[in-house]
Design a protein around this nucleic acid. Sequence first.
DNA 1: CATGGGATTGACT
DNA 2: GTCAATCCCATGC
Length: 196
Amino acid sequence: MTLEREFYARPVVEVARDLVGCTLAHGATAGVIVETEAYHESEPACHAFAGRTPRARVLFGPPGTAYVYRSYGIHALFNAVCEPEGVGAAVLIRALEPIAALDAMRERRGLHEVDQLCSGPGKLTQALAIELEHNDTDLVSGPIRIDPRPPGWEDADVVAGTRIGITKAPELEWRFCATGSRSVSRPWPVALRDAA
DNA sequence: CATGGGATTGACT
DNA sequence: GTCAATCCCATGC
């Protein structure tokens, strides 16, 4: 049932859009992916832009691998490596809608409100206990798993917008969100605000 | 080896 | 709206 390696070995922008509505799970905790962003070696916001540095090495490896790095010295951010091996690219998972083991998420986050458990890239790694040690683990056979859209999410609509929190290449519309989800991190894309 | 910045979050004015 | 926390790593000397 888990997504296979071929799913990730495609253009990273396509994978980012297709991952919305799929589920991300680690241990007992799981959620539906409602927000993603694509990063590719050809544009300067991507860590692979500088080439095969020690940090970016994983991005050039086999598709379907986890890339986890520390942001602002505090948060672990989770990505899925994409494109064929040799091309540096990954999809950042920015938000989930929690569906399993919510009490474990609440304990790790120190919060009760469901909409705040995984509504940001640093929040969801804390809620799912994803840390730097999971960098370079396999998404096809490893501890972190991504599965296809579950019942009720087959027809979810996806809207595109510009990426968040970056200073380079801010004009690319490589951010994808599920319409109608309350777990998307702010600010919402223009298309989502109009729909609401 | 020293330095500077960042794909964020939470607390505060 | 502003701002600090905190650490890995890319870069430059």
